[in-house]
């Protein structure tokens, strides 16, 4: 894993455990993407940041923690806004989607499909979360096969609320799936969507299908 390169988009609730576990596990190069700064209200769940880092860019704040955790890994940043083609000339091995809105998720998905880069997608809100792996191969479904692309942005954690350790649960599973994909071992959640309801402590796995009319991954 020390020669692998993983892009983490979003250094919030999900990105915190993802980044910390991948750094601790020794993924050689982590690329971080987030344009927000650390706010006191983030610290309830975004555990890669702390009170001494309020006001810093989340990428810088996370780098400090991750580099202290593992000084032997390389950490870099994405400075430009991501687009549907931004991965094509890059050598990213896996993209981890820890973002917080549909618009960004659709762009990340399209970029991964266009570049053929595996995508480990996670999301969480209130008491529930979900994880899926999209392999970005021609036969497999993509994130866009699940959701229609209308104007609904979805609800944000800051508005709807979120159980603090829920992002730890979902982010940790994302980190597990990244390591499996990087190492080519086990059965990743490819073609499956894992759903978690913390309030009732129920897990469900749905089988996914490729949408033959998907505007992103179908021909």
């Amino acid at each position: 894993m020390d020669e692998k390169k993983v892009l983490i988009i979003g250094l919030g609730g999900l990105g915190s455990p993802v980044a910390m576990y991948l750094a601790a596990a020794g993924v050689g190069h982590l690329v971080l993407a987030d344009f927000d700064r650390v706010d006191l209200s983030n610290l309830q769940r975004q555990i890669v940041h702390d009170t001494t880092q309020i006001g810093q860019y989340k990428t810088i704040s996370a780098q400090t923690k991750l580099q202290a955790l593992n000084p032997d890994i390389e950490i870099s940043f994405i400075k430009d806004m991501i687009s549907e083609d931004f991965l094509i000339e890059d050598d990213i091995d896996v993209v981890v989607d820890c973002s917080d809105n549909f618009a960004t998720r659709f762009i990340i998905n399209a970029a991964c499909v266009h570049a053929g880069t595996p995508l480990v997608s996670g999301a969480a809100l209130r008491w529930g979360g979900q994880v899926a792996v999209f392999s970005s191969s021609p036969q497999s479904p993509c994130y866009r096969c699940l959701y229609s692309d209308n104007e609904d942005e979805g609800e944000a954690c800051s508005d709807a609320g979120i159980l603090a350790p829920l992002v730890g649960v979902i982010g940790s599973i994302q980190a597990v799936e990244v390591i499996k994909v990087l190492c080519g071992i086990g059965n990743p959640l490819s073609g499956r969507l894992l759903l978690f309801d913390a309030l009732s402590m129920q897990w469900r796995t749905l089988k996914l299908h490729k949408d033959p009319t998907c505007p992103i991954c179908s021909n």
Partner: peptide
């Protein structure tokens, strides 16, 4: 038949 709410937060 099961229904699940949309989840986008992170």
């Amino acid at each position: 038949v099961a229904f699940f709410p949309p989840v986008t937060g992170g």
